[in-house]
Amino acid sequence: MAALGSTAPNNLLTTQGLSRNFGGLQAVSNVNFDLPEGQVRALIGPNGAGKTTFVGMLCGRISASAGRVAFLGEDVTLLPAHKRISRGMAYTFQITSIFGRLSLRENVALAVRRRLAGHPDQVQGEVESALSRVGLLDRADQIADDLSYGHQRLLEIAMGLGQKPRLLILDEPTQGLADSEIADFKNLIRSMAGQTTILLIEHNMDVVMEMADFITVLNFGEILAEGSPEQIHANADVQAAYLGTG
């Protein structure tokens, strides 16, 4: 356990040989992945490249067939999802997943309360701060189902913020957002940069190239390339597999 973490003490998250197969299909195979603290990392790749499966294994939604995941220097491979989350991960779903019949306030409060179990008096303040960061504070008492799709995506991000995670995993956060909303989203990520480590699965290349410090490209369940946005942009393999066809 210690050995896995000590190889790279500044890495918030590490995987070694992480693999998953469904029946005969190898969705993710043998991925070694290091994510340093404070980085904004983009995870890109064509549809079906195994991105969602991969992050599912990071946060415990999907169990690994082989390999290990270390978070904050400790092996979390066998921990169930809720324990990984309580150690400081947060995950926003690719398909919007909120508490539709509850108010925005209660949605975010659920995210905040677990962390502040001993300090109920601070919940209200943190809920409002998270909602105001995504610009939804004025709608705090609306029912989540009544929001537009774009606002629901933002609510989900607010729930991620409310957890004050060490690692925030965003699964296609800009999918279905209007251009103006995407601009707001970029500002939000910028405001978090440095404090929160972010792993961003994203299809929108403008967002990726502008926001990411570093990019990992997944193809057929394997890492095809890693590098800075410029390096990835110039990488011929990536262009062939992904950018060229996109």
């Binding site: 946060c59 939604r61 169930p80 999802a81 809720h82 324990k83 989350i85 309580s86 995950y91 779903f93 997943s97 909120i98 508490f99 539709g100 019949r101 509850l102 209660e106 409060a109 659920l110 995210a111 309360r113 677990r114 179990a117 109920p120 729930m159 957890q163």
Partner: peptide, 22 residues
């Protein structure tokens, strides 16, 4: 808070789990 988590489980179990609740 405990009761609110129960309601959260009723409304969306997967989301409640991914907020770190057992």
């Amino acid at each position: 808070p405990f009761g609110k988590v129960l309601i959260a489980i009723r409304e969306n179990e997967d989301r409640a789990r991914m907020l770190g609740y057992d």
